[in-house]
C-alpha cells in the first residue's frame, strides 16, 4: 500500500531582491513596474522540479543531496506546510514531523505545561497527552525537572523534551529533518533506538540527513536530490556511493574506485 505519493510536483519560490526582508507597498509597486518592463527576466527559483515519487507503507526513505538541493522543501511539501505550485501530493495517515522540535515552547512555563501546549500544537488531544505524559517525561529523562520552568533547562534538556514529545505523537508517517543528533552520545543512542523501533513497528519514514552512515543504516531506499530533481534513486549503498563520488569530483579528487572501474571499462576494447 502506498503511504506517500508525489505526482509531478513543482515548487517555485520567488527570488527576493537583496535587503527585501520587509516588503513595503512602494517596493511592491516598483517591483510590479519592473516586471512589466522586462517580463522575460526570471525572478523565481524552482526549488522542486517535476518530482514524482511513491513511498510504500512501512518503507523508510532517505533523502540526500547538497545544500539547496530542495531536501527540506520536499519534506515541507510532505508535511503539508508548503502547497505545491503544480502536481499533487498524497499522504495517507497521521504525519508527525520532526522538522523542528520544541516549537511553541515558552521558557517561562514548566516542562509539564509545555508538554501540553506543544502536544496540542502537534495535533494531540488533551486525553492523549495525559495518557502519554509519563512516557514523554521518562523518555526525555526529566522526571526531576518537569515542574521547573523550561528556561532553567540546558539546551540538551530542551531538545530532549521536544524530541520526546514529537516522537510520542504515535504517527503513521514520520518526517525527520536532520535532528538525529539530539543531545549527547547517550541520548543519541536512545533516539537511534526509537527510530529502529519505528521501523520494527512498520512506520513509514522519510529522513533528510547529511549523516550518510545513518541514512545507509536506517533506510530501505535513498533519493539523491540535485538542483530540485531526483538525480538517482535506489538502494542506499549504491546511491550513497555515487553521491560521494559526485562530491569527490566536485572537490577535484577522482576517487580510486571510479578510476579503476573506468580503466576496466576501457580495457576490453580491442
Amino acid at each position: 500500500m502506498v503511504a506517500i505519493k508525489l505526482e509531478n510536483v513543482s515548487k517555485i519560490f520567488f527570488r527576493q531582491p537583496l535587503k527585501r526582508k520587509y516588503t513595503t507597498l512602494r517596493e511592491t509597486l516598483l517591483h510590479y513596474f519592473d516586471w512589466l518592463k522586462n517580463k522575460e527576466k526570471a525572478r523565481y527559483v524552482e526549488a522542486i522540479k517535476d518530482i514524482s515519487l511513491s513511498i510504500e507503507r512501512g518503507e523508510s526513505v532517505g533523502i540526500i543531496g547538497m545544500n539547496g538541493s530542495g531536501k527540506s522543501t520536499l519534506l515541507k511539501l510532505l508535511a503539508g506546510i508548503y502547497k505545491p505550485d503544480s502536481g499533487k501530493v498524497y499522504v495517507k495517515g497521521r504525519v508527525a514531523s520532526l522538522i523542528g522540535v520544541g516549537i511553541g515552547f515558552h521558557p517561562g512555563f514548566t516542562g509539564r505545561e509545555n508538554i501540553f501546549i506543544n502536544g496540542i500544537i502537534l495535533g494531540l488531544s488533551k486525553k492523549e497527552i495525559k495518557r502519554r505524559f509519563d512516557d514523554i517525561v521518562k523518555f526525555a529523562e526529566l522526571e526531576d525537572y518537569i515542574d521547573e520552568p523550561v528556561r532553567t533547562y540546558s539546551d540538551g534538556m530542551f531538545m530532549r523534551l521536544g524530541f520526546s514529545i514529537a516522537t510520542n505523537v504515535d504517527p503513521d508517517i514520520l518526517l525527520i529533518d536532520e535532528i538525529l543528533a539530539v543531545g549527547d552520545e547517550y541520548f543519541g543512542h536512545k533516539c537511534a533506538e526509537k527510530i529502529a523501533e519505528f521501523r520494527r513497528l512498520g512506520k513509514t519514514m522519510v529522513i533528510v540527513s547529511h549523516q550518510l552512515e545513518a541514512i545507509e543504516k536506517w533506510c530501505d531506499r535513498v533519493v539523491w536530490l540535485n538542483d530540485g530533481m531526483i538525480r538517482e534513486i535506489g538502494i542506499p549503498s549504491k546511491v550513497i556511493d555515487s553521491y560521494r563520488n559526485a562530491i569527490a569530483q566536485k572537490e577535484g579528487k577522482i576517487p580510486l574506485e571510479i578510476r579503476s572501474s573506468e580503466a576496466k571499462l576501457r580495457v576490453p576494447t580491442p
Binding site: 506546510i81 522538522i99 523542528g100 511553541g104 500544537i121
Partner: peptide
C-alpha cells in the same frame, strides 16, 4: 514564526 514555517499549524 516557527509555528508557521516549521509545523503544520
Amino acid at each position: 514564526g516557527d509555528l508557521i514555517t516549521r509545523v503544520l499549524f
